[in-house]
Amino acid sequence: MKVVVCIKQVPDTKGGVKFNPDGTLDRAAMMTIMNPDDKAGVEAALRLKDQYGAEVTVVTMGLPKAEDVLREAMAMGADKGVLVTDRVLGGADTWATSQTLAGALRNMEYDLIITGRQAIDGDTAQVGPQISEHLNIPVISYAQNLKIEGDSVIVERQYDDRYHVLKAKMPCLITALAELNEPRYMTPGGIFDACKAELTVWGRADLKDVEDSNLGLKGSPTQIAKASDKVRKGAGEKVALDPAEAVDYIVGKLKEKHVI
C-alpha cells in the first residue's frame, strides 16, 4: 500500500505572532512549522505504515527552504520526500496549487492521498478537495478516524452536529483534522537519517498533464485586490477592583447599555 501526504510549511501564527512597530505583521520574525492538520495527516499515514507496512511519501510545494518540513516528516518516519519548487509556480491560489500538486501526484503511485484539512496561514481548506477533483478520485474531508478494509478506506467524517461513517474505494483522498491523532515526535535516529536523506526535487518540467495556463500567479483565477493588517477596535476601559466593586461596575455598565 502506498500513501502520499501533502504537507505545507507555514508561519507559526499560534502564540508567536509578531508585529512591526507600525502594527503590521512581522513575517520575517515568525517561526515556520509544519502545518498542524498536515502533521496529523503524516501521523495517520505512519500508523498505516505501522499497521499495514504502507510506504509513506511526503510531498510539498514551496520555496527551497520548505525541505525542512519534508525532513521533519521523514524524521517522524516517512520513507520519501518530494519537493516541488519552481519560480513559475509562485503566487498560486488554491486552483493553481491544486493543479501543481495533481501534476506531481500523477507521477507517483498512490492508494491513498492525505492532506491536512486546512493550513493555518490561508485557512481555505480548498486544496485537498480540488486535488481530488483534478485526479478524478473520491474525497472524504474532515476525517476524524480512519481504517483500511480490503481495497476501501472507512472514515468517520465530521459535520457540525453529527458524523458519517463513509466507505470509499481506493485510490481516494482524505483531508485530516488535527483532532485525528496526536502526532509522534521525531526520533534522534530519524532526525539523523532525515538530515542525510536524499530528497526528490521537481520543477515545472516534472509535472504531468498540466497546462502552463493553470500554474502560478498567471494561472490563478483569484487575484488579490487589497491586503491589509486587520484593524481591531481599540481596547475599552480596564479596571482592577475588589470583587464587590467589580460586580457593581459590571452591573452599572449593563444598566447603562440597557442590557438589564
Binding site: R232, A235, K238, V239, D242, P243, V247, D248, V251, I260
Partner: peptide
C-alpha cells in the same frame, strides 16, 4: 483586554458568583 469594552482584572472565582447574586437580586 485589547478588544474588551469593559475589562476587569481580578479573580473570576470571586467576581462571577457575586455578579450572579447581584444580578439575581437586581432582576
Amino acid at each position: 483586554f485589547d478588544v474588551a469594552d469593559y475589562g476587569l482584572v481580578g479573580d473570576l472565582n470571586k467576581i462571577v458568583p457575586a455578579l450572579t447574586e447581584k444580578l439575581r437580586a437586581e432582576l
